[in-house]
Simulated scan of single mutants.
Amino acid sequence: MSGWFELRKNSGGTWRVRLKAADAQTLLDSGLYPDRTAAEEAIALFRENCVHQERYQRRMDSGGKSYFHLRAANKETISVSHLYDSEPTLELAIETIMRVGATQLVKEA
């Protein structure tokens, strides 16, 4: 499965990054970055860390939905996922992100 990072400039001048699957489904959505350079650095940090299973800290919200924090080697949170209905769905999402997140393809939207 291939995918790409979508790099988008918002109307306020900030930048957002999304990881997209081959079918254009959004796998992860970043926070806001003040400039393009910061957004590109975030992509590089994500690529470096997303391939390590131990960097995904699995959690459950108060409503019983699963989600994860992707952390860097220094324990800094890189990304927080959206909520998943079950742990198997969460695990499938992590497997997909580990595979797709190493992509070098970046498309500007």
Results as ranks from 00 to 15, higher is better:
2 S>C: 05
3 G>Y: 01
4 W>A: 04
5 F>R: 02
5 F>W: 04
5 F>H: 04
6 E>Q: 07
6 E>C: 02
6 E>P: 03
7 L>I: 06
7 L>M: 07
9 K>M: 13
11 S>K: 07
12 G>F: 11
13 G>L: 08
13 G>Q: 09
14 T>I: 12
14 T>H: 09
16 R>E: 10
16 R>T: 09
16 R>D: 05
16 R>Y: 04
17 V>W: 00
17 V>A: 00
18 R>L: 14
18 R>F: 08
18 R>W: 08
18 R>N: 12
19 L>H: 00
19 L>G: 00
19 L>V: 03
19 L>M: 03
20 K>Q: 01
24 A>D: 14
25 Q>V: 14
25 Q>Y: 05
25 Q>T: 11
26 T>I: 12
26 T>Q: 05
27 L>H: 06
27 L>V: 02
27 L>K: 01
29 D>L: 11
29 D>Y: 05
30 S>Q: 02
32 L>P: 01
33 Y>W: 09
33 Y>K: 02
34 P>V: 12
35 D>R: 02
39 A>F: 02
40 E>W: 04
40 E>F: 06
41 E>C: 07
41 E>S: 11
41 E>N: 11
41 E>T: 05
43 I>W: 05
43 I>L: 06
43 I>H: 01
43 I>V: 14
43 I>M: 07
44 A>S: 06
44 A>Y: 05
45 L>V: 11
45 L>K: 09
46 F>W: 06
47 R>N: 01
47 R>T: 03
48 E>S: 13
48 E>M: 10
49 N>K: 05
49 N>Y: 04
49 N>P: 03
50 C>A: 04
50 C>M: 04
51 V>P: 00
52 H>T: 09
52 H>P: 00
54 E>W: 08
54 E>N: 08
55 R>T: 00
56 Y>V: 02
56 Y>E: 01
58 R>I: 09
59 R>K: 14
60 M>G: 02
60 M>P: 00
60 M>N: 09
61 D>W: 09
62 S>A: 14
62 S>V: 13
63 G>K: 11
63 G>N: 02
64 G>V: 04
64 G>I: 03
66 S>H: 12
67 Y>W: 13
67 Y>I: 03
67 Y>P: 07
68 F>A: 03
69 H>V: 08
69 H>A: 09
70 L>G: 02
72 A>V: 11
73 A>D: 12
76 E>I: 13
77 T>L: 07
79 S>P: 10
80 V>M: 15
81 S>W: 10
81 S>Y: 13
82 H>V: 15
83 L>M: 15
83 L>W: 15
84 Y>R: 09
84 Y>S: 06
85 D>G: 15
85 D>E: 12
85 D>I: 07
86 S>G: 15
86 S>Y: 09
89 T>I: 14
90 L>Y: 01
91 E>Q: 13
94 I>R: 03
94 I>L: 08
96 T>V: 10
96 T>S: 12
97 I>Y: 00
97 I>Q: 04
99 R>A: 10
99 R>I: 12
101 G>K: 00
102 A>G: 14
102 A>H: 05
102 A>V: 10
103 T>W: 04
104 Q>W: 00
104 Q>R: 13
105 L>H: 13
105 L>V: 10
105 L>F: 06
106 V>S: 09
107 K>H: 13
107 K>E: 13
107 K>S: 14
108 E>H: 08
108 E>P: 00
108 E>M: 05
108 E>N: 07
109 A>N: 15
